[in-house]
Design a protein around this nucleic acid. Sequence first.
DNA 1: AGCATTATTTTCAATGCTCGAAAAAAGACC
DNA 2: GGTCTTTTTTCGAGCATTGAAAATAATGCT
Lengths: 413, 413
Amino acid sequence: MTRTVSDSDSVRRLNRGLVLGGLRMQGAQSRTALAGLTGLSHASITAIMGDLLAQGLVAELAGERADGRSRGRPPTNVHFNRAAAYAALFEIDVNRCRLSLVDYGGVLVDRIETEISPKTFEDTPPCSFFTERLATLTARNPTARATLRRVAISVQGILERNGHGLRWSPIQHLAGHAFGADLSEEIGLPVTLHKRGRLLAEGVRWLDPSLHDASVATVFIGSTVAMGVTFRGQIMGRGDEGATEFGHMNHTPNGALCRCGMRGCIEAYAADYGVLRNAYSVPESAQPAPAVPAQQYSSLMHRAETGDRAATHAFNLAGRAVGYGLGRMLAIYDPSHILIVGPGARALELMRPEINQALNASLVCKINGLPSIVAHHDEKEPIFRGLLMKTLNDIDQSDFAALPGSEKIDAGT
Amino acid sequence: MTRTVSDSDSVRRLNRGLVLGGLRMQGAQSRTALAGLTGLSHASITAIMGDLLAQGLVAELAGERADGRSRGRPPTNVHFNRAAAYAALFEIDVNRCRLSLVDYGGVLVDRIETEISPKTFEDTPPCSFFTERLATLTARNPTARATLRRVAISVQGILERNGHGLRWSPIQHLAGHAFGADLSEEIGLPVTLHKRGRLLAEGVRWLDPSLHDASVATVFIGSTVAMGVTFRGQIMGRGDEGATEFGHMNHTPNGALCRCGMRGCIEAYAADYGVLRNAYSVPESAQPAPAVPAQQYSSLMHRAETGDRAATHAFNLAGRAVGYGLGRMLAIYDPSHILIVGPGARALELMRPEINQALNASLVCKINGLPSIVAHHDEKEPIFRGLLMKTLNDIDQSDFAALPGSEKIDAGT
DNA sequence: AGCATTATTTTCAATGCTCGAAAAAAGACC
DNA sequence: GGTCTTTTTTCGAGCATTGAAAATAATGCT
């Protein structure tokens, strides 16, 4: 049952994909630049670009710009035709939902934000919730409706293996519905669910070019602890399998109570609520706070930075949990980069001593040395970015790399 | 710098690789069967097979056999021409070295076994050790010498990132030499080093067809604890990166002393010496026994099976270590199959209650249910098998899938 | 024996893609 | 206006795949 990648049609699809990918990665550029980037000949680029132009997927950019010299024939830059497609992107959090309409060029066109309460999905089935907002959006943007190609949803929790819904989620009443499949059926478009932690990894990949093809573990620390992993530029695992649940990796048997109901998860020590609980010497068995205000978390960091014993201790415990978690991860998967992002990234230096000490207890670190762990606090919206780029890239490769006429759309997630 | 896979040469290489892969997986078969297996047309199979025959890589099999009916023209089976290539395979263990000469059909041609002592590599540099044995082997098999294409070495320990040698190894004095690169230079052939645990995964993949393209974590329990992982039939990671060090994942901070010198590794509880130590209530901080006789280990199992308290307790501790380790792995990587192999596989049922209890402490298992964990004790020589198939497959895909004339051999590891 | 049937392989012409080389295009420079 | 330089396009050649038709090689029936 090995899949064949053989006929000349596949070659063309591959090369179209290469061209679109180059454009996605480097932005508007000349045909010559694309030839260099993709390794294809100028002749092939001309042929492929002719098709793409005829299909209206790309457009020639009037104003062209050579970097330094301006000797010979000036290059004609090409870039995505923004109107060629649209995507609707949902980001669901515990307390808010954001729906963004983006065009094929990756530009934000419209956005709807909604507050969510624990009762939201108790009263409204998730599918209706999404459908309603989508209807509002398309009503406001009639031109986009016709060429809307994808709906992608960023979720937290554990996905069904088939990707149709969630098995578990910290967002109340969201799990247990196959809302991805339902929504797809309802609107007749592919709907994909993405785990938030994995989008983080995708976003980081696009925001920092040096990480685009690297093996990276991106750890989010904030109201939760999550990790997304890439392996040489590929996100590991498909929709369902391979999702990482780093925040809920066990740190200590029968340890602190986690929001998920288990005990001893890394998150229960390293997420904001865990640090808060330990800083105030609340028993580990106490129910976690439902939400921690941002300034309370950041004042905790400030106290630790200025020497407060209790706060320091709490961050030490957090560092220890993260450190042992990373050390255990390294025994399975050893990425070339480890990034810490999210509100907790600012606390990296507070945690680092304990992280390093924990890592030193692992053979891999003893042999290979400590991995470099860096904080990226200035990334703005890596999750949105990840959702955006992943979805557009998916449109490029699945829909547009194939020749028109042989459209074989897998509707559904 | 995206790599191009474009011109018609690549297509042919891909399809030749597909054909060779089909032959490798299913053995001798007719052209029609290959067409079905690879998805290529009969015409293409004929063309490709013509080339392969002309190159002497495959041969037509005289005696052909249809399964049931024998109506039409009888099929002509093709299979590998055994003399087309040879590979030399080293398996280095703590106390023995085995060098096997295999032909392109995977048949064992000759074998040299040597005892190893802790002083072996103190007196002799590893490279000379390998060169000597290789010289003996080729002297005995002059015909194979000319078409020897690969030397592959199964090792234990942590590889250098470039794969040229070992950074650390339980085999004395083997680490610290770039013996892979040296040997390659010496004999002018590619030499590859493979971590034993990963070959295990590769071997299991070939021994059980249902696992060939699955995502599997294979855990070896015996004198060490090791794990090899496949992801949809691909071994994760390249030569260096992505190697798993499951046995040395931390189980308990400052726990039992491991052979590697660290404390609290899973191996220190679950390998034979760990179980032995706990069964006899030797302090956890005691230096591990250098080697445990097989019958001592198996009598320990027998005692536990017949209710001996101390032995049962020791296996409980082992199960707990393995269980928490697997639970922690599941937070990063969630394979569809978990296999236990090696001498310790017989003890799976002794360990299972504690394994399950540990897994139940992880959120992933709570949500997805316990993974199925099965023992494969009847596998014979999965490591040799893995080394063999990986090496032959590498010859197929790297050397022979490319058209003759455009040979671009990367000598060296 | 002879002919129809069945199944595997090979042959053949058509299609489509890439590539290198050469030509064309579009300005800048003098 | 002519020369240079750099980007694009054009053109013919080469190759691999494919579907359909032909060839091949037995078996089974009359």
